[in-house]
Design a protein around this nucleic acid. Structure first.
Length: 298
DNA sequence: GTGTTTGTTATCAA
DNA sequence: CTTGATAACAAACA
């Protein structure tokens, strides 16, 4: 389940390896993964260079360099949804006389040849580097949009991000005023905060000592401030750990995230609460598995 | 065969 | 009209 820290980890890795590189071929192994018509999708990428890579929430945005001044500015959007992976395989290195040793880092860390049965698309670069888009459940997508469409998507669907000035305790106070939603659903809403998902919402609420089913309008100013601080803290730590691998998240080298062992409540079922040792509770809220401590969270 | 997993959207109800 | 809650999607595993 890639959330902000996982997508940011991938963004940083890709930025250092494919920015400036020219796309030589695009292969679609599952047509519906590309949200545009195949011919248009391939045409918009092939022969173009990657200008830069950014991210909004869980959405990865590759700016595609236009070939001429009049050519429209395109972006490749990549959303991993639940099970998407982006794996880079370096091109065969020319080493005099030697055989190619470990050219595929994915095989080294996870063990598997690429493409595999879940590979939905492959983007190949001139130097031989290949970017594999794997997605077991086919929820993820690739989509070419122009600058107008991108602006519209970002404006309509994404609120401020953690760790940016746009997200503040005051902003949250304004958003939750008079609202009757529970805080779990509130935090999962990308239009309110971009980038949080099920794992980090449960972790932030535990750290802030707030029960996930609390109605947002009932939160005291002090609780909102604490929540805001804990959201930033957990996201910052998770990025530093290169994300959380719970099911199948891996970075662009095929390696797992290190934050999993730092999780306090997510995926811990009825294990003792790390603070009070009472058994944690797992229930369902906002249609999602929800983990919390009935004693530590008020 | 059943229930569970989640990011996002679609749909329905209040 | 707004808001909120829930189903649906997809596929694999216990």
């Amino acid at each position: 389940m890639p959330e902000l820290p996982e997508v940011e980890t991938i963004r940083r890795d890709l930025a250092s390896s494919i920015v400036g590189q020219e796309i030589s071929a695009v292969k679609l192994l599952f047509l519906k993964t590309a949200k545009n018509k195949a011919a248009f999708f391939v045409g918009a990428l092939k022969g173009h260079k990657v200008a830069e890579i950014s991210r909004t929430g869980k959405l990865l945005i590759l700016k595609i360099k236009s070939k001429t001044k009049t050519e429209i500015q395109n972006y490749l959007l990549i959303h991993l949804k639940m099970t998407g992976q982006l794996i880079l395989a370096a091109g065969a290195k020319k080493i005099g006389g030697g055989h190619s040793l470990g050219g595929n880092s994915f095989a080294d860390s996870v063990g598997g040849e690429l493409p595999n049965k879940y590979t939905r698309a492959v983007i190949e670069f001139k130097g031989g580097t290949k970017l594999f888009f794997n997605d077991l459940r086919k929820f993820g997508y690739l989509k070419i949009v122009n600058d107008l469409e991108l602006a519209r998507i970002l404006k309509a669907g994404y609120g401020p991000e953690p760790l940016t000035p746009g997200l503040s305790a005051a902003y949250l106070e304004g958003k939750l005023k008079n609202k009757k939603k529970n805080i779990k659903a509130f935090l999962l809403d990308q239009k309110i905060i971009a980038g949080l998902g099920n794992i980090y919402v449960d972790e932030a609420l535990f750290a802030a000592g707030i029960k996930p089913m609390r109605i947002v309008a009932s939160l005291k100013a002090l609780e909102v401030k604490k929540l805001y601080q804990e959201i930033n803290k957990v996201i910052k730590k998770a990025i530093a750990s290169r994300g959380t691998t719970f099911n199948n998240y891996v970075d662009s080298a095929g390696k797992k995230g290190n934050f999993s062992r730092l999780l306090k409540v997510y995926g811990r079922g009825k294990l003792p609460c790390p603070k009070c040792r009472q058994p944690l509770i797992k229930t369902k809220l906002a249609g999602r598995g929800t983990h919390y401590c009935d004693y530590c969270q008020k």
